[in-house]
């Protein structure tokens, strides 16, 4: 495998925000157990955008969900700011970790509760854990909506009345309202139109620069990853087969699987 060096990292140098060591995850028990993550090592530095590429079933989403505590893992270790995350999250762990790490998902409509207004959706994370007054909370929600190019009157509308791109922006606002350090984006643009994809990608890039966010971006559009990510890791059958600087990996892929992936990308690569 390519050594993970020689890559200029944005923001704070070599400040590891997330460290994943020999992570193993099985689904099922005994003879039927399937190894979904097989000794995965991955570092994410503060302020960078790391892309995670690979086909469906390669374990990208499972890895993301293990980091976020949505799945327990079997062995290995995940360190967030040098603190070891438990293998299985308790309710308290969730509350604490949710301040630091948030996620956005592929299908923006199904990731928002259809029976809550946008206001409720945005305020819920604040209500659960914030010392701000109710008024301040609402101010904050409105600020975020405006940052997402939505109107403050949208607070009282329901998810079904928005377009896909708008919903994804609401999802981003919900994730960022608590000011996490790491945002995991699980294929956030796969369900969107090309013109809207560009909006979301621009937005993510801007937010990274404004807030000093760190992003783990999962996707399979290599052209978009080349544009967005500082580093990429390629996953295949539960293993990271190659990782490094985006241009290195995509211009000079070393692993046969990466080459196959690069060759099957349609255009502009």
């Amino acid at each position: 495998m390519r050594p993970v060096v020689g890559c200029t990292i944005r923001g704070t140098h070599m400040n590891k925000l997330l460290r994943i060591e020999k992570l193993v995850k099985h689904f099922g028990h005994g003879k039927k157990a399937v190894t979904v993550l097989n000794h995965v090592d991955l570092d994410i530095h503060a302020g960078e955008i790391v892309g995670l590429a690979g086909e469906s079933g390669s374990g990208k989403s499972t890895l993301a969900r293990c980091i976020a505590g949505l799945h327990s893992y079997d062995s290995g270790a995940v360190y967030f700011q040098d603190a070891l995350l438990p293998k299985k999250f308790s309710a308290v762990d969730f509350c604490q970790q949710a301040k630091k790490l948030q996620m956005i998902f592929q299908d923006p409509l199904s990731s928002l509760n259809p029976r809550l207004t946008i206001g409720d959706i945005l305020l819920e994370p604040l209500r659960l854990n914030s010392d701000l007054s109710a008024e301040m909370q609402e101010q904050l929600a409105i600020q975020w909506l405006q940052r997402m190019s939505l109107k403050s009157s949208d607070l009282s509308r329901y998810p079904h009345s928005f377009s896909g791109g708008q919903l994804q922006r609401i999802g981003i606002a919900r994730a960022l309202i608590r000011q996490p350090q790491l945002l995991i984006c699980d294929e956030p643009i796969s369900a969107l139109d090309v013109s809207v994809q560009a909006q979301i990608i621009n937005l993510l890039k801007d937010l990274r620069d404004e807030l000093g966010l760190t992003l783990l971006f999962i996707g399979h559009d290599l052209a978009m990853m080349r544009y967005l990510c500082d580093r990429v890791a390629v996953m295949h059958q539960g293993e990271i087969v190659e990782q490094g600087c985006t241009t290195d990996v995509l211009e000079h892929p070393q692993h046969a699987y990466t080459r196959k992936l690069v060759n099957s990308s349609p255009i502009f690569l």
Partner: peptide, 9 residues
């Protein structure tokens, strides 16, 4: 506009 929305090598 559609073409400009695509990332270029």
């Amino acid at each position: 506009a559609l073409l400009a929305a695509l990332p270029i090598r």
